[in-house]
Design a protein around this nucleic acid. Structure first.
Lengths: 210, 210
DNA sequence: TATAACTACCATACTAGTATATTTATATAA
DNA sequence: TTATATAAATATACTAGTATGGTAGTTATA
């Protein structure tokens, strides 16, 4: 239930400001109210839903301050992770990153953005796993859900995936070359990229923002 | 329910490895099973409980890798926060920090460790609030619950609160003096303090560790 | 006409019973 | 005595009904 509803919110099938109810969702997904309620609670913790006690539940508007907080956390953590894996990265992870990167190039050519989206995620996840920080990655994923919605908006607007993919390649190179300063620096600018377009999107869709 | 049960786990009223059940807790706290279940789910997400489907629920052993992950996140985030608030800190926050510090000194004299524990928390929280990162603080608090249990163990062992309090004072001074490098440096060593005693405690209470 | 009180409705919050799977104890056979 | 099959006990997972509180619409009154 949690995954299903979250996907629907992130993919804009349910838009910010929409009122939804346990009962309604339960009937649509053909389960009882409790599993839906449990999903609601988890999504509320993540601030994707706002539960107003005894009254109703609405899909949260995008909160740019929350987006910035999550971006900040990612920047501070991932620069350190990039630095940490330099030099001591396992062959297995190197192989996985290489595979990931070649698929990214393929998807870039074919313009299959949805798949590219997922490859982007798993590129970063490989680095977290390598440095034994899988829980930190889950935490970041949880904080990042408002930003994920923004990314889906941007998908249509044809973002500059070229830059993203080439940065991934540069980060990989810096890591295998055991150049922590370089790895950290590129990772930092990589994670500052998301700052672009935020304000522009807010102007374009003002109703969906807080 | 969530807060109650969490407190009991952190204060070692329910020990790691203990089997607990929704029904049992519900009866003891005189509510029905659902609110307890919801608390269980949240605590399981935080890894304080391990829910084994259709079988049972046990209080997790302390996982030193998780403790280290949380410590690492705190270090990377809080050094940046300390740097960020330098120079631009509001009078209100300065006042709150001063109040907090003088209370810390008082509690240090009187050896009221529990209260000191709370003052320590709120000292750091003030800095997060000042830099508009309240959600980041909640996130850290959530990741830190395994470490909180360790701290309670240490409370009895009479830890070196003198060092902790004087570091707080030094961090405060660096911030009001607008010395970001100094602030960051002390914050870093402050958050490395927790590394001490971890392995020792594990030897002392091997059954409670993973 | 505007405001206050009342009522019907609907949302979440909680309770309790049922379903399902796992564990444990027991009985039987090799 | 040991191994295996089976049944009872017990835990979570789910369903559905009830309680409680909040919202909006209507009516009555100033």
């Amino acid at each position: 239930m949690y995954t299903t509803i979250k996907q629907q919110i992130i993919n804009w099938e349910i838009k910010p400001g929409t009122k939804i109810s346990e009962k309604e969702v339960a009937e649509k997904l053909e389960v009882s109210r409790t599993p839906v309620r449990e999903a609601f609670l988890q999504l509320a913790q993540e601030e994707l839903l706002e539960i107003i006690p005894q009254s109703g539940t609405i899909v949260s508007n995008i909160d740019l301050e929350l987006v910035e907080e999550a971006r900040f956390v990612r920047e501070r953590i991932e620069t350190a992770v990039a630095r940490e894996v330099c030099g001591c990265i396992s062959e297995e992870s190197v192989f996985q990153l290489e595979m990931n990167l070649s698929m990214q190039e393929l998807c870039l050519e074919k313009r299959t953005h949805q798949r590219l989206f997922e490859l982007d995620e798993s590129f970063h996840k490989i680095l977290f796993d390598e440095s034994n920080k899988s829980r930190t990655w889950s935490m970041i994923r949880q904080m990042n859900s408002h930003f994920d919605r923004l990314r889906v908006l941007r998908l249509a607007a044809n973002p500059n995936w070229n830059v993203v993919v080439s940065q991934h390649k540069e980060i990989f190179q810096a890591i295998v070359n055991n150049d922590p300063d370089q790895a950290e620096q590129i990772m930092e600018s990589h994670l500052k990229l998301v700052n672009f377009e935020k304000e522009e999107l807010k102007k374009q869709y003002p109703d969906y923002f807080k």
